[in-house]
């Protein structure tokens, strides 16, 4: 390789638009959130697992479970968490807490932000978060719900303010 050659590059950009199809099972799940402020899961009657976000099939028993719905309470526990302090391009402005939450009666977990924790002092905030922390779901008002996971927020069950 010659040492002094000027090495070029040209700019590029991917700017694509999509409409992501939810399908029948997830549509029903999101419509229940939007219209009735409730979380519906599917249940496999063979292995008894309750799956949320719901799937139309049980991947372990390999049977359809698309018509077997159960309602879950809007409470649960924090199962995994991180405090994000870095600004990723195109992702939310830090700081924020992401967690995986197990709703009461569910065998799976859902991702969401953990809100209701003061993040002005991260050291202090960290001490208040632990795997197993009880949480509750708080739905937006009826007119504000649009059939998305962001129609509700998740915060600690008990507030100590």
């Amino acid at each position: 390789m010659s040492d002094n050659i000027e090495l070029l590059s040209i700019p590029g950009k991917w700017d694509l638009t999509y409409n992501y199809t939810a399908g029948e099972t997830i549509s029903k799940f999101l419509i229940e959130i939007r219209d009735n402020a409730r979380i519906m899961a599917t249940k496999c009657n063979q292995c008894n697992r309750v799956i949320v976000p719901p799937r139309s099939y049980c991947e372990r028993c390999f049977i359809s479970i698309k018509d077997n719905w159960v309602e879950l309470e809007p409470t649960g526990t924090l199962e995994a968490y991180t405090i994000v302090t870095y600004k990723f391009e195109g992702l939310p402005d830090p700081p924020y807490i992401i967690g995986y939450f197990r709703l009461k009666g569910a065998d799976t977990t859902i991702p969401h932000f953990l809100t209701g924790i003061d993040l002005s002092d991260l050291e202090f905030a960290r001490k208040k978060i632990k795997v197993g922390l009880p949480v509750r779901l708080i739905f937006k008002n009826r007119g504000q719900r649009e059939g998305r996971m962001t129609d509700f927020r998740i915060e600690p069950l008990q507030h100590d303010r």
């Binding site: 999509y18 992501y20 939810a22 997830i26 799940f29 999101l30 976000p53 199962e79 995994a80 968490y81 991180t82 994000v84 870095y86 990723f88 992702l91 939310p92 924020y96 992401i98 967690g99 995986y100 859902i110 991702p111 969401h112 932000f113 795997v131 998305r148 996971m149 962001t150």
Partner: peptide
């Protein structure tokens, strides 16, 4: 890489996923 309908609203990526596995 995550489900665009139920998961992509929450800023998930590989680093924060591993951070969650790490805190556990």
């Amino acid at each position: 890489i995550y489900d665009p309908v139920v998961a992509s609203d929450f800023g998930l990526n590989i680093i924060n996923h591993v951070a969650m596995e790490t805190s556990r």
